[in-house]
Write a protein that binds this DNA or RNA. Structure first.
Lengths: 347, 347
DNA sequence: GTGAAAGCGCTAACAA
DNA sequence: TTGTTAGCGCTTTCAC
């Protein structure tokens, strides 16, 4: 069976204009700023657009418009959940705004990245702007080099701006607050907390949210209930185990990410504890792991796609808009607690 | 601190031409088919390109070339690992070939998709071609509708072509063969196998690969060692438990995906079995779960990015190339066994 | 309100 | 081997 598929040229502005009996420009106006056009004409044009199933050619539009950006997304060993959401969000925003995306994968087998080399490479690529994702956005040497090289950059996942770089981040603190409050509402008072790696700025934010919620509800925070992990399953298993082995163990444990929460669950399993009836366990991030394990994990999800979308729009505004602006810090705080089976009301 | 960043216009072909003292076309030729240009000229042009740090404007190139495609990636509840790799691969290939990507997320809360509606929507979008990912690519009603609607499509993850649609898939069979062989080389003969959902074409392929390897090594396959799962952690835990509770249990268990393998590991843990010394457990897919759990899972990884790249290139060729061609079936068989801690030589 | 002209940065087709 | 012309599909600018 031989087939030869041919790209069927789709309708152009000109064709729509001819069919509607107006000029090319009028159609363009209807599509962009319709307020300048008479209602009658709009109707005619829209009929023609509909009839021809016209779709604007983004390439031509961006080229003629002269303000299409080439934006790089720079990442380093992200989790696939994070990466896919970033990509989906960034692509969606770029499509809307007529920009192009270029991926720059700095992932490696464990070695550190060289800010000098990376910056040089990025510079040679002729990008108009960058999205720097965590953990890179926390690398101040890299950020400084990038600044020196004059590439407009958005620091994703950070809250403090640096130089004239804006940031877009998640409100980890209020998310942790909400999750803690949820546990408190379930009747828990003895709540253990496992902190994540201290290098990550958001680790502290999550801990703060937990503490604030406890204080807000006038619940005493037992120091022995706060453990230091490093975001790995193993550290969750170890630290969770220590909490569970306490003479008066907590009735609920809040781990700073899902991997550690899964570790705590494993620790509870190995002690033959019933989850959630003997101990409630909750995580953070809503990774796939959380619904893969048993019992499925109650956790809190970040709107990563949204963060990416916002970052792209911010870059767009910063570069293309005339109004002068200061470096801004956008904090997205759509908190969504995903209730699954690992947490329950205290008995 | 007020800043107003401005997009700095990058060099154009014309500027390079002027600097090199040649015509615009010569520069274009150096960039595209350099064989038509004198070596001397090439050198001059390259110097100018270098000096101006010239980067071609993809938009203009695609627009002028007249063969830029708008390609849709259609997906339905993919795992994030799968999605991110598909996106990375597709974006990379599209950038090279000058095509644009549009995402079409059909994910939902559980209901079935309506092929009629989906096809209609896709048709209205004016796409030049589609990548249909699993499980959608196995939906024959959808595939048929898509065919009727005349949108060139690549079926990702299928091996049998349908209508004139080409397919690109992973060689699950040889991967399962390789993994089984690996277990055999470790000294295992009593190997349990957990099959995945029968609706998925690749479930059968993985099982076949397992059986073939066993036969190839003249090892008797005990029917009681083959269990039916459904790709969930829970089914792995249950079926794995049954295998482990057998009077003479297998010394190794091969689950058709990582989630089930993790379930088997949980089952083994709850029976106080030492992994890998009492029982080896391996998975399939190399999802993040596999390195998150303990012990880390030995598994096999699919080159999903590559599959996406190949799919885009195939679509490109099918639509843009003059030579007539039949629907083809590309099978990528780069098998990579990831050796971690969950499998060991028999004692 | 609407239209005509010019041009975004590049390549295709032809000419020299 | 190199240059000239036209034009991809759209927006911008300026004219009416």
């Amino acid at each position: 069976m031989e087939t030869k598929i041919l790209k069927k040229r789709s309708a152009t502005l000109k064709e729509v204009a001819e069919r509607a009996g107006v000029s090319l420009m009028t159609v363009s106006r209807v599509l962009n700023n319709r307020d300048l056009v008479k209602q009658d004409t709009i109707t005619k044009v829209e009929a023609a657009v509909e009839a021809l199933n016209y779709r604007p050619n983004i390439l031509a539009r961006s080229l003629a418009g002269g303000n299409s950006l080439v934006i790089g997304i720079v990442y380093h060993n992200p989790s696939s959940g994070y990466l896919s959401e970033i990509l989906v969000g960034a692509m969606t925003a770029c499509r809307e705004l007529g920009h192009q995306l270029v991926l720059e994968d700095l992932s490696d087998g464990g070695g550190d990245i060289d800010p000098e080399v990376v910056t040089h490479r990025l510079q040679k690529m002729g990008l108009d702007g960058l999205l720097l994702t965590p953990p890179l956005s926390a690398n101040s040497v890299l950020v400084q080099k990038l600044h020196d090289s004059n590439i407009p950059t958005i620091l994703v996942g950070r809250q403090k701006t640096q130089y004239d770089f804006s940031t877009v981040s998640f409100n980890d603190q209020s998310a942790a607050f909400a999750m803690t409050q949820y546990l408190i509402e379930l009747g828990h008072k003895d709540i253990g907390f496992i902190v994540g790696s201290i290098e990550q700025p958001f680790s502290g934010r999550r801990k703060d949210g937990f503490l604030q919620a406890m204080h807000h509800h006038n619940i005493y925070v037992n120091d022995a209930f706060i453990k230091q992990g490093d975001y790995t399953f193993k550290s969750g298993m170890e630290q969770g185990g220590e909490l569970l082995d306490l003479e008066n163990p907590p009735t609920a444990i809040f781990a700073s990410n899902d991997d550690m929460a899964a570790g705590v669950i494993a620790a509870a399993h190995s002690r033959n504890l019933d989850i959630p009836n003997s101990v409630s366990i909750v995580g953070f991030d809503d990774t796939e792991l959380s619904s893969a394990i048993w019992p499925a994990l109650t956790t809190v999800r970040q709107p990563i796609s949204n963060i990416a979308k916002n970052s792209i729009k911010l870059l767009h505004d910063n570069i293309l808009t005339d109004i002068p602006k200061a470096a801004s810090s956008t904090i997205i705080d759509t908190v969504e607690i995903i209730r699954r089976e690992s947490a329950a009301a205290i008995k």
